[in-house]
Write a protein that binds this DNA or RNA. Structure first.
Lengths: 214, 214, 214, 214
DNA sequence: GATGAATGAGCGTTCATTCAT
DNA sequence: CATGAATGAACGCTCATTCAT
């Protein structure tokens, strides 16, 4: 198992191998249960080399978070054409999101679960990425409301809660799609669009659901 | 902090004190970082007693998950009157859910985060509870569709995905509400109902959002 | 080798065994080269027990320094009768000093060498003990000068340097006596008294040696 | 700090740079805590080169001890004119000794502390140098006794102990002078001459201090 | 001649777990 | 019933040392 034991590779290559192994191990076992020994072995190198290049378990984990956060945001960005209408942008973004998280389940576990449960430093690193995505969704909601000629704009806190719920639902569906094997990114994205967009549509035409009196 | 150090309590009581301490510690530190020493001290008993009653760290953690899962499901069930319309049931259930998770953040952390990241055994335990909630929501969606005279029924997989997304959004909002301090359970529930129910409403009247051709 | 492996001893006893083993190991190998493994084995216990009782290598070393410093100062104090003349007090003190350092060479190594070369914290601990001894000698010199009717008192810095030299010579002779096996404490003390006291005597009668012009 | 990184220097020069760096590092950190990495970096060369030229950490340390021992003995020898009277020779030797150790504190630490606390091999290396100095002092004492017409000669063991004490006092004062910043080599040497020579003077004129009966 | 790449071995420390009382 | 005493196993990390180029 693990990478083929090739000797004398340039530093940059070895570093990527180590990050690959670390992401897999952190994702599979969790931050604390992952041992540097296992990561080194999976990377096909000795432990001291991991320390020489990545400094410490914390630094290694941070490097994983950063690399995978950039990869995920990059994948979503690459999937979206900002010239298209808001609903199409959301659809494309979701598709890219589910495709990427489906292809890199360990990376998604690192970002979604591990990073958020082992110290503020890591959480902040992952939160920065999530904030980018929430901001993207928030802006889509505002634009969509205008496209639907809703006037005046939705209150800010309302929009924040909606974006939070939408992203939360997406994150949850990503886990679901990773588990239930026959769910494709398309299906996951379609489910979420139906769930969310139509609801937002009703909101925008002024027919929100009203809670009963307490 | 910690139980008052009283001697000679009946076993059942002592066990609950230990579980209280364990839930708080597991929730605060995470499964791996929580030490049996800390739990025993917080419970006000000696470490061997913890082992005598709860066997091992794994068993102790399992007991925590079971107890808190039952408590959460019980709280939601107690908040819902199955004689009322589906939307009212969902509203009441969400209210109870957000209230309970808000009052017991460590327990929620154990169920939502810790249980799902430290081995299949624990994850299955928590998944059983989640399945109950998803089943409840699934059935509400089916009932609501019928109440709205939608015909024919939504495809099963569609409903499953929708329930999954709704529960996922709720879980995400629970964390959000626990963090952003000024969010009350009512506000969280209202946001989610607006987001979800109105969307479902559109779906049910036959106006789903259509994905573009690939 | 090492202590007989006796099980279940009271904590206080085990702690002393550990300190015994630690002093011997630190003295023999030096602070850095001494391994906690070796200390634990020599003490006849497992390594975790050493940590449970003594906390860390640094704390263990500090405990060694403190115990042995007190033992040495106590031995010198017990050997001296402050009612006797100054030269007799010095003689008795030296005798006690050489006897104690001769009987506990590892302890002497810890105090004289190891403590002073591995960080300010340890050095300060040992310096406090040395300061007690230097103060004792300083006061003896002053008293002796008065007993010899020297008038006026020797300048303070002069006395400080003399006490420093005397103590330094004693420390050096302790090592010498530990190495050259046939040297008894009496012989070492006599050599030093001849060397020092007679020199001080000359000083006090006003015949110091004069350095040549530069 | 460290040598300027110049390429293609003759081996002898490179070696001296390495030894300079090693002496400083060993003196500053101690033998065990000094790392070959730090030494190589301070010397401005790569680690394998250090091994190529100096073989191992032990050999490197031995080379340091040898070089600095020779330098110290050389400095003392150069300061003394063997044609002068014994007291003048001692004075000049002490002056040279304190001046050299003051100018090279790391070297002095290597010889006086590090070499004596990390294995018999190193200790023997430093002991050889110390023996030279003790021999020099021993002979001075014998000569001085004759110059003072003392008859018969002092017993050999007596002289050995006196020389040992004198050298020990000097070593101790060297450390003291390195620490207390305002002490010049002249002051240190004067203190020691007053302390020792006058005492020896009394001894030689037949007025030694007598220990009390046991 | 000189170095970037790599490692075996070991250290300080911690933790879940178990006896003996 | 309850606990003070004790440990096997593992973990994060570092270091002296050596290849392959």
């Amino acid at each position: 198992m693990g990478a083929v034991k090739t000797k004398r590779m340039p530093r940059a290559v070895r570093e990527q191998q180590m990050l690959d192994a670390a992401v897999e191990t952190f994702g599979r076992r969790g931050y604390m249960a992952a041992s540097m020994d296992e990561i080194a072995e999976l990377a096909g190198v000795s432990k001291p080399l991991v320390y020489l290049y990545l400094n410490s378990k914390e630094d290694l984990f941070t490097a994983c978070i950063r690399r995978e956060a950039e990869a995920l945001v990059g994948a979503v960005r690459a999937g979206v054409d900002t010239g298209l209408p808001a609903d199409r942008q959301l659809w494309d973004g979701l598709l890219a999101f589910f495709a990427h998280t489906g292809r890199h389940p360990h990376a998604w576990s690192v970002l979604h679960i591990q990073a958020r449960t082992h110290g503020e430093t890591f959480a902040a690193e992952a939160a920065a990425m999530r904030a980018e995505i929430v901001a993207f969704v928030t802006q889509l909601i505002v634009v969509a409301a205008r496209e639907a000629h809703r006037d005046p704009d939705l209150p800010e806190r309302e929009v924040a809660g909606l974006a939070e719920a939408l992203v939360g639902a997406a994150e949850s569906l990503a886990a679901w799609a990773n588990t239930a094997e026959s769910v494709t990114p398309r299906q996951a994205a379609a489910t979420l669009m139906n769930f969310a967009w139509a609801g937002l549509g009703n909101l925008m035409t002024g027919h929100p659901w009203s809670p009963p009196e307490p």
